[in-house]
Amino acid sequence: MTGPGDPPTDEDVALAGEYVLGALALEDRQAAALRIARDPGFALEVARWEARLDPLAEEVRPVTPPARLRRRIEARVFGAPRQARPWSWLVGAGGLAAASLAATLWLGQPQPPAPGQGGEGLWISDMVSPDGTVRLAALYDADSGEMRVSVGGAAPATGRDFELWLIQGEAAPISLGVMPHQGQAAMPIPEDLRPLVAEATLAITDEPEGGSPGGVATGPVVAAAPLRRI
């Protein structure tokens, strides 16, 4: 998190500008994108460059897209059930399998953590609020890159949502999305975040409905637990 006494370096400003210019090679671009997700100060520099350079796009004259595109977009955006973030919720899907997954996560014997190998295996994080009223279990399959969560216990207050965060070392938490109030959900973890999942801690915070407005956690931490290999 960038504080007021922590101005961006010239190097950060230049890199943010290069990202917005778009000329970086794939690897450098991906590294910068990861930085945007983890470092709000850097993300702000990028937003400033976007505003600064935007008039260069004035010369691009509008082109009306084909009508079928609008229908496809409508189907993609509205066709799915509640979709607060780029998660594909499978709420209620999977029935028994999902229910037994939840039972395994809550009742299963904890295994001793294995040495960190981010690229493979199953990882779980069992988050329980200190008063025991909110429980959220997450199971991450590093081979498929999919995370499944199971939410139980007390729901957030009216007008609030629980949001899940990935915390790796000292870096700013990365939002993984808004949680359903009850039940199971599955989501693919974006490829660029996968290397960060192993050894990370997951946390849920209490946020305004729809999730934290600025991509930075604003509410109190409800529960947190490290991911451990099973």
């Binding site: 796009a57 691009v60 004259r61 509008p62 082109v63 009306t64 897209p65 595109l69 609008r70």
Partner: peptide, 8 residues
């Protein structure tokens, strides 16, 4: 916004 974004 779609015509501008499509053009871009």
């Amino acid at each position: 916004s779609a015509p501008k974004l499509f053009a871009i």
